Computed example of a mutant assay.
Amino acid sequence: MVQFDPTLQLPTSDELLDSDDLPVDNELHTLVPNFLRFILSFIWSSRLDWFFGVNMGVYHTTGINLKIPIVPDGFLSLGIDRLLPKRKGKLRSSYVVWEEKNIVPIFALEVVSQTPGDEYDEKMEIYAKLGVLYYLIYNPEYWLRDQHEPFEMYRLVDGIYQRLISEPFWMPEVGLGIGRAWGIHDRVEREWLYWYDEHRRRYLSPEEQTQQAQQQALEAQQQALEAQNRSQQLEEILRSLGVDPNTI
Results as ranks from 00 to 15, higher is better:
110 E>Q: 08
75 F>P: 05
221 Q>G: 06
193 L>I: 00
188 V>E: 15
208 E>N: 03
46 S>P: 04
177 G>C: 03
130 L>V: 10
150 P>I: 01
159 G>E: 03
138 Y>H: 01
231 S>K: 15
181 A>V: 02
26 N>M: 13
207 E>F: 09
245 P>T: 02
4 F>H: 14
124 M>G: 11
131 G>V: 11
29 H>Q: 14
5 D>M: 08
238 L>T: 10
117 G>Q: 10
10 L>Q: 06
65 N>A: 15
128 A>D: 08
24 V>K: 11
221 Q>V: 05
247 T>D: 10
66 L>N: 00
74 G>E: 01
119 E>G: 01
124 M>V: 05
133 L>R: 12
96 V>H: 01
28 L>H: 11
248 I>Q: 12
28 L>M: 11
66 L>E: 02
8 L>H: 02
236 E>D: 07
141 E>F: 07
169 F>R: 07
187 R>S: 15
245 P>E: 00
168 P>K: 09
213 A>V: 11
197 D>V: 07
72 P>T: 05
116 P>L: 12
141 E>G: 03
48 L>H: 08
188 V>F: 12
41 S>M: 14
179 G>R: 01
16 L>H: 05
124 M>R: 15
176 L>W: 08
83 L>C: 13
10 L>W: 07
129 K>P: 04
43 I>Q: 09
106 I>L: 13
52 F>V: 00
102 N>S: 07
202 R>T: 00
32 V>F: 04
116 P>G: 07
3 Q>W: 05
155 R>G: 00
18 D>S: 13
238 L>N: 13
45 S>M: 11
93 S>F: 03
226 E>V: 12
215 Q>I: 13
184 I>S: 13
85 P>Y: 02
172 P>I: 01
193 L>E: 02
134 Y>S: 07
40 L>K: 09
145 R>M: 06
12 T>P: 05
181 A>F: 02
192 W>T: 03
219 E>M: 10
79 G>S: 05
246 N>R: 12
113 S>T: 12
73 D>W: 02
79 G>W: 04
121 D>Y: 12
171 M>R: 02
194 Y>H: 00
207 E>K: 09
13 S>I: 04
116 P>Y: 11
107 F>M: 04
149 E>D: 14
164 L>H: 11
199 H>L: 05
232 Q>C: 06
111 V>T: 03
67 K>E: 15
170 W>V: 04
131 G>Q: 11
85 P>W: 02
